[in-house]
Simulated scan of single mutants.
Amino acid sequence: MQKYADYIEEIEIDSLWSGKKHIRWTLDRQVNILSGINGVGKSTILNKVVRSLSQGGEFPSHSLKGVRLKVCPDDARWIRYDIIRSFDRPLMASDSISKVNTALVTELDWQLFQLQRKYLDYQVNIGNRIIETLQGGEADAAEKAQRISQPKKRFQDILDDLFTETGKKIVRSENEIRFSQMGETLAPYQLSSGEKQMLVILLTVLVEDNKDYVLFMDEPEVSLHIDWQKRLIDLILELNPNVQIILATHSPAVIMNGWIDRVTEVTDITDK
C-alpha cells in the first residue's frame, strides 16, 4: 500500500549550477518562503525538487537528479503535491488544445479547464460522503454533513468577497465554475489575469480535499492586487489547514500578515 508523507522536513540538493552549490533547507510544517535577488536560484530550486518527483508523487530513498527529501513520517515514499506557476502566457500547443475548447488561450485557461474536471470529481466525493453520513442515522448526522460541505461554501464566499469590487459572484446553482456579473454569466476564461490566477490557486487548494499536500508556488504574486497578495497565505491555509506551502517570491506583501519569520534567503541555505 502506498504510504504518503504528511510534509517535507528537509530538502537537500547536490551539485546545483554545475556542481558549484549545495542546498540544504530545513522546512516548517506549514509555510516556507524562499526569497532572494533575481537570478539567485529560487525557481531553480523549486523546479529541481518537483522534477525529482514522479507524476504520482513517488520519490526514491536515494538521491535522484541530485535531490534528497527528508519527510514525515520517514518511511513514506509518496507525496501528494501540486505545483502552481502563475505566468499567464499564451499556450504553446494552442492548435491542439483549441480543439478541446476554443476559449482556452493562455496557460491559466488550460489550468482552469483541468481544474474544472477536478472540481466536478471533488463535488461527487463530498456528495457521496454527505449521503453516507445522513444515512448513518447518527444523532448529529446533519451537523456532520454540514461540516463536510463547509469548505466548498467557504471557497464560494471567499471568491465573492475577493471579486466584490467588480460585481462578480460565483453561480452556486451550477456544478461547474461560473460567475454572474450585471445579469451576464461568465466562464472562468473571461476573468482578468489576476482573477484567473487567484481562482487557480484557491481551486487547486479546495480540491485537495483537506488532505496532507505540499503546494509548490513560483512567484504566485504575479498579477495579484497587493491586498490579495497579503491575504494569499491565510486563504490557502483556511481552505486546507493540512497543506504545506513552499513558495518562491519577490513580493514583501506576501509576508505582511505575520509570515516574515518563515522567510529563508537562498544564500542562507547554500554551501559552496
Results as ranks from 00 to 15, higher is better:
L120W: 09
G36F: 00
L112W: 03
T267C: 08
A248S: 12
N240V: 06
T270A: 05
I245T: 02
L159H: 07
K144Y: 05
K152W: 09
N101L: 08
Q135L: 15
I269M: 04
D161Q: 14
I8C: 03
K48C: 05
R178Y: 10
D268F: 02
G183H: 09
K272T: 02
V67T: 04
L27A: 05
I226E: 13
T270H: 01
L104R: 10
P241K: 09
Y81K: 02
L247K: 01
Q181H: 14
G258H: 06
F59Y: 08
A103Q: 15
N210Q: 14
Y81H: 07
K99C: 10
S86M: 12
V50M: 03
W259R: 09
K70Y: 09
C72T: 15
W25Y: 10
R117I: 14
F113I: 04
I269V: 10
L53D: 01
P73T: 06
G41F: 02
S251F: 03
R172Q: 15
Y81C: 04
K211R: 15
K99Q: 12
K153L: 11
K70R: 12
F216Q: 04
R129E: 11
Q123C: 07
T44L: 12
L91N: 01
S223F: 07
K196N: 07
S15W: 07
G39W: 03
V124R: 14
A142W: 11
R231D: 10
M182I: 11
M198W: 01
P252N: 08
Q156R: 14
S251M: 07
I97S: 00
S54L: 10
D14C: 07
T106A: 01
I177P: 00
F155R: 03
D88Y: 07
D209T: 10
D121R: 13
N240A: 08
R262W: 07
K169I: 14
E107G: 06
R85K: 13
Q150E: 14
K168F: 05
I131A: 15
Y4C: 01
L69V: 01
A76G: 03
L191T: 06
W228S: 02
Y4G: 01
A5Y: 04
W110Y: 15
F155H: 04
D74W: 11
M92R: 15
K65L: 15
M256Y: 08
Q114H: 13
T106K: 05
D95N: 12
M1K: 13
W228M: 06
R178D: 03
K144T: 08
V49F: 00
L235A: 06
I226F: 12
L247S: 03
S98P: 04
A253T: 05
D74N: 12
N128A: 13
I23N: 00
L53Q: 02
T133K: 06
R172A: 10
S35C: 11
W17M: 03
Q114P: 04
S52T: 05
S180Q: 13
S35T: 13
H62P: 03
I148F: 03
A253P: 00
S251D: 04
S15P: 01
H22W: 00
Q116Y: 09
R85E: 11
I260M: 12
P151I: 02
D212A: 11
R117T: 13
V205P: 00
D28N: 15
L237M: 12
L69A: 04
F59R: 02
E221H: 07
